[in-house]
Design a protein around this nucleic acid. Structure first.
Length: 312
DNA sequence: AACTCGCGCTCATTTACATCA
DNA sequence: CATGATGTAAATGAGCGCGAG
């Protein structure tokens, strides 16, 4: 059994996996593999194994979203062992229906439908910055909202306008209520269609662009958290495999020692199974068995040793 | 049908700022 | 009060898909 680890650029396929899987990713990644491998004779093992149903395992962890919490693009590798239970994070359906939502917003599934009763309040930016917001922030935010309402949906162009109108980028701290509301929405969908974005912005007295950015950052945080979970799991998994590898190596050594210390054992022919002519049962048939039971050997024409009673 | 272009979106990365110990 | 660490809102640029021409 061999445990191989690869960290860095373009993980190379492990030798004992040559006939099984090839890695094609050129990204920097983490790669771990487990397979039968004794003293570098993986080729022999591979040949004798033949069509074994015990395949080698190679695990590739790519730097980009190895496990998607909220979406799982088909081209990306996902880890089957991670379930929504493990992840404490909401596991939404793959966002394949995004186009559908954009074509016609599924308002029935809108976060507002479930949380608006709780948070249907005027979440004014007057209360933002946890009550520490100053007058300048307030005026800036208000003018931004007015601009947004005049200009319609956010875009890069409006961002540039923002830049022109707002000389210094003043950081706005979202209030607890705003964050909670956004969080609830995120649990429903981790992406927004334009209508949802507009609605959320209106309800929270924020610019649609701010809502969009919040979701962007929230997705990034989710992903980061997930990466940490993955790393932790892989670390433990790696330790387990290392331990298993050590144990098997030790076992192998013991077997080899036993083999060399008992040379007569070497002379024993392989045990084969044959059918006992008298009882019609499978029995072990070896020259060794025959030699130690002279009487039995004399009683029968062949070397089959049968200790069971003949069938009546 | 193949192409180009513009648009809008997401993502990764970086920057800037607020907050806290 | 100054300072470094941390969290996070926002900016930026790249890449992708899609519809229109």
């Amino acid at each position: 059994m061999e445990l191989a680890l690869c960290l860095g650029d373009t993980p190379k396929p492990f030798s004992f996996l040559d006939k099984t899987q090839k890695m094609v990713h050129k990204d920097i990644g983490f790669c771990m593999a487990l397979g039968p491998h004794i003293n570098g004779r993986s080729q022999d093992i591979e040949e004798t194994r033949g069509s074994s149903t015990d395949p080698t395992v190679q695990l590739n962890l790519l730097p980009f979203s190895p496990v998607q919490i909220n979406q799982t693009p088909p081209s990306k590798l996902s880890f089957p062992w991670l379930t929504k239970n493990l992840l404490s994070e909401p596991v939404g359906p793959p966002d394949s229906n995004r186009q559908e939502r954009e074509d016609g917003p599924a308002l029935s599934s809108s976060p507002n439908s479930t949380v608006s009763s709780i948070f249907n309040m005027d979440l004014s930016i007057y209360t933002s910055n946890h009550g520490r917001g100053n007058k300048r922030d307030l005026e800036t935010s208000l003018s931004e909202i007015e601009r947004e309402e005049r200009g319609g949906s956010s875009s890069r162009a409006s961002d540039h306008d923002d830049e022109e109108n707002c000389l210094a980028r003043k950081k706005l701290r979202l209030s607890k209520e705003q964050s909670a509301f956004l969080e609830e929405s995120f649990k429903e969908h981790n992406t927004l269609n334009p209508k949802e974005k507009q609605d959320l912005a209106k309800q929270l007295n924020l610019r649609p662009r701010q809502v969009e950015v919040w979701f962007q950052n929230r997705r990034a945080r989710t992903k980061l958290k997930q990466t940490e979970v993955d790393c932790e799991y892989l670390k433990k998994y790696c330790e387990t495999l290392t331990e298993e590898n050590r144990r098997l190596q030790k076992e192998l050594q013991e077997l080899r020692a036993l083999k060399t210390s008992q040379p007569f054992y070497k002379q024993l022919p392989a045990t084969t199974l044959t059918m006992c002519p008298s009882c019609e049962r499978c029995v072990a048939s070896t020259a060794y068995a025959a030699s130690i039971t002279a009487t039995a050997a004399a009683a029968t024409d062949n070397t089959t040793l049968c200790l069971s009673k003949p069938r009546s």
